[in-house]
């Protein structure tokens, strides 16, 4: 089995977790487009709270959001991916250059970034998609900083830092 074939299995698993996170965000946000900007934690208060106070905000949505994590911020994933891919290019080349790891040349595609096999970047892609998706799927711990400010990394908060 080649390196790409192996990667394919793991990238499919990562995509599966990402789909779960997206589905959950849709379910929770389906009728909450007006409430999306509130920061959803309930602790946001301030001006943002006022903007929706006259609306009927589904109690179920609010309750669900306080137990489920905020949705994945895909723009933030994009920025993280750009940073991590550049760092992978730099450090993977160093690690291979000094001989920390070796590859069977018959099992890699032969596409390289410097001396780093392109396949290695699958780890980075997997990390930046899988980990934020898991983070979003896990329930927020009560009493944590996340529970108070909510979604540092997701939905646009309604003002106060």
């Amino acid at each position: 089995m080649t390196y790409w074939t192996l990667n394919a299995f793991f990238l499919v698993a990562v995509a599966g977790v990402a789909v779960l996170a997206i589905q959950r965000a849709w379910r929770l946000g389906a009728r909450g487009t007006g409430a999306r900007g509130t920061g959803s934690g309930g602790a946001g208060g301030g001006g943002a709270g006022g903007a929706v106070s006259g609306r009927i905000v589904s109690a179920r949505t609010v309750a669900a959001r306080t137990v489920a994590g905020p949705a994945v911020s895909w723009p933030a994933v994009g920025i993280t991916a750009a940073l991590l891919l550049v760092m992978t290019a730099v450090f993977d080349n160093i690690m291979i250059g000094v001989g920390l790891v070796g590859y069977d040349e018959t099992l890699i595609s032969g596409a390289f970034i410097g001396i780093a096999p392109l396949e290695d970047f699958a780890y980075t892609v997997a990390a930046v998609v899988l980990l934020p998706s898991l983070w979003a799927l896990l329930p927020v711990s009560s009493g944590s900083a996340s529970a108070r400010t909510d979604s540092a990394s997701a939905s646009p908060p309604g003002g106060d830092a």
């Binding site: 994933v77 940073l83 930046v128 934020p132 979604s151």
Partner: peptide, 20 residues
């Protein structure tokens, strides 16, 4: 790799949230 990913993700999210 995992810690860096999540630190960067949280920092990027905060940066984006601040822009509007």
């Amino acid at each position: 790799l995992c810690y860096l990913t999540m630190n960067a993700y949280a920092a990027a999210g905060r940066m984006l949230a601040r822009m509007p």
